[in-house]
Design a binder for these strands. Sequence first.
DNA 1: GAGTTAAATGAACATTGTTCAAGTGAGTAT
DNA 2: ATACTCACTTGAACAATGTTCATTTAACTC
Lengths: 206, 206
Amino acid sequence: MNNVQEESSRDQKKYRRRLQILEIARGIIATKGLRSLKVRDVAEAAGCSVGSVYNEFGDFDGVILTVNRETVQALTLRLVAVPAADPVRQLYGLATTYLEFFAEHANLLRSLFEHRMEDDRPYPDDILQMVMDAFALMHPPLVRLLPNADDVQIALLSRTLFSAVHGIISLGLEERMVAVPPQMLRQQVEQFLDAHLGGLGILPLR
Amino acid sequence: MNNVQEESSRDQKKYRRRLQILEIARGIIATKGLRSLKVRDVAEAAGCSVGSVYNEFGDFDGVILTVNRETVQALTLRLVAVPAADPVRQLYGLATTYLEFFAEHANLLRSLFEHRMEDDRPYPDDILQMVMDAFALMHPPLVRLLPNADDVQIALLSRTLFSAVHGIISLGLEERMVAVPPQMLRQQVEQFLDAHLGGLGILPLR
DNA sequence: GAGTTAAATGAACATTGTTCAAGTGAGTAT
DNA sequence: ATACTCACTTGAACAATGTTCATTTAACTC
């Protein structure tokens, strides 16, 4: 039972620390990259022992995967908030929103796409599914714009188009590779959509 | 001076072992992924001490980067061999050749695009330049197909288009993500080019 | 308050990248 | 042929980092 001095139960404390660990890990990944994430740094910053990190997440991959899971969730929140009134604007909105999110959280996105599991353990299915779902968000507007097309074809097209946008953005923001200026990148993505939608018989925005 | 028993000078031995180390490292990356590459494994397989690996490559990143360098070189060789007679076919050829190469050497390509340097050391410029140059191989055919376009615009378009193809392929081959069947992926890439070239006012192949 | 149990601890261990003092041997000079 | 030199090799030791677990702690229960 709770008394006055203890403001939180054991579970609440545990949960708070879990969040704290995740926040610290996310901060390190975001600012210094996944490769700079170290168990001891996280434990020290969270004011606990390394054992506690393992107790909470099983292994270190568990911390990374949880951060990655939350990254997809945050991305999805941003993407589903794109207005759906005009399907063409929605497609542009999805692309530029992805660009904005990627630019704001480049290292978190890289952690999501580049992290490899130890040995041959499989990547968690739920994360993969969330990524696939996010990439499928172009499906509804495409259905509206191509009412005569096969639904399976559109599903494929949706993934293809989003993957293409992903490629343009992820390589464009790759500072290793003489990065493209961010404003130019937006223009690049939009021009890409102009041409591609045009080629699909859809009247583009410009 | 050489005698009969020693078939090679010191330098030749050194060079041979360098090649051997690279071959072993490449094999491990290709079959088990970059994360499974270990100095001791490489040294043991090459029949030398870990110190010799360091002596030859400076640090372990040096081995990885040399493998990556050779990967881009091999990729470039394949891409420049694409026939240039018909610029439209050349564009399709570049894309499908990239797909083939990526499918054959998925882990080597991932090593190239996903490897991050320790700390904040910069990625070697020559490798970045080679990647950029490879991605610029769509420039000449695009110039021929869009004679009235600004050359800078075409340079941008070339990189955008290749980046898009890269995104489609790298995510499509990502076995983590319920990979797309390989033959379907080729069709996907070609349909992508159909639509995009069409949108650019270029008559596509199909 | 005593007992139970989940959680925390951190030292010890395992793995892996890195260094370096000592040894080796191919080339060279005499 | 012998001695010398110096670049290269070696592998043990070290450093950094992920992982485990016997012990301790403290929250909860009765």
